[in-house]
């Protein structure tokens, strides 16, 4: 549904604005790695632009820190509609190890609405390409929530022990 909508909304090449909101530079290096000839994101018509006013997509890396929060909001507001926001790395997607620190808002989704998250610390360049391809509708989503349950018969231990005591001869002898 969203992929179809994206296809309609962005029929032409996406221009990407890279916004570092207090990242350690690891995710930024991976983003630049994606633009190199080896990974070559320009196959999909992507191009890094310097200004948010030229961009369709904003890549946020880093947990949004308190000083950068107004700047991120401003950059988001400066982008023309329609716009997509990618949270790249564990910090942007959920806050990373700093999710509850006093100087961090705890993830990009607390500052601006995030459409896609790419977890990883830092994410592999392939993972970023996969996220981009997912947004363009080229690949299917592979992540799904996992529910695990230990299948054991829930015997009430107290009742079980009582039954054991009643059945066991030694307890009867001891009680006499």
């Amino acid at each position: 549904m969203l992929a179809k909508l994206c296809k309609k909304a962005f029929p032409k090449s996406l221009w990407v604005y890279h916004c570092n909101s207090g990242a350690c530079n690891g995710c930024d290096i991976e983003i630049l790695n994606v633009l190199t000839p080896y990974y070559d994101i320009e196959r999909f018509g992507m191009k890094l632009v310097a200004s948010p006013r030229h961009a369709d997509v904003m890549l946020i890396s880093g947990a949004v820190t308190r000083p950068t929060l107004p700047l991120v909001k401003k950059a988001y507001a400066a982008m023309p509609e329609p716009k997509l926001v990618f949270g790249i790395g564990s910090c942007a997607s959920g806050g990373g190890s700093w999710f509850d620190c006093y100087h961090v808002t705890g993830g990009a989704d607390k500052a601006v609405p995030v459409n896609y998250i790419i977890p990883g610390c830092p994410p592999k360049p392939e993972a970023i390409i996969y996220g981009v391809a997912l947004a363009l509708g080229l690949v299917d989503k592979k992540a799904s929530p996992v529910e695990l349950k230990q299948v054991e018969f829930p015997i009430d231990t107290y009742l079980k022990n009582k039954a054991f005591e009643e059945r066991n001869v030694i307890y009867q002898v001891l009680n006499q």
Binding site: G94, N115, E126, A127, K141, P145, V146, E147, K149, N161
Partner: peptide, 28 residues
Amino acid sequence: EQYELATNDKNDIGVNMELFMLTCQRCG
């Protein structure tokens, strides 16, 4: 080796596990 974890929903990359715990028969 799964790294293709990009999603549009945060709940997609979670694992929920219910563990059955035995209790001590003396102290519960």
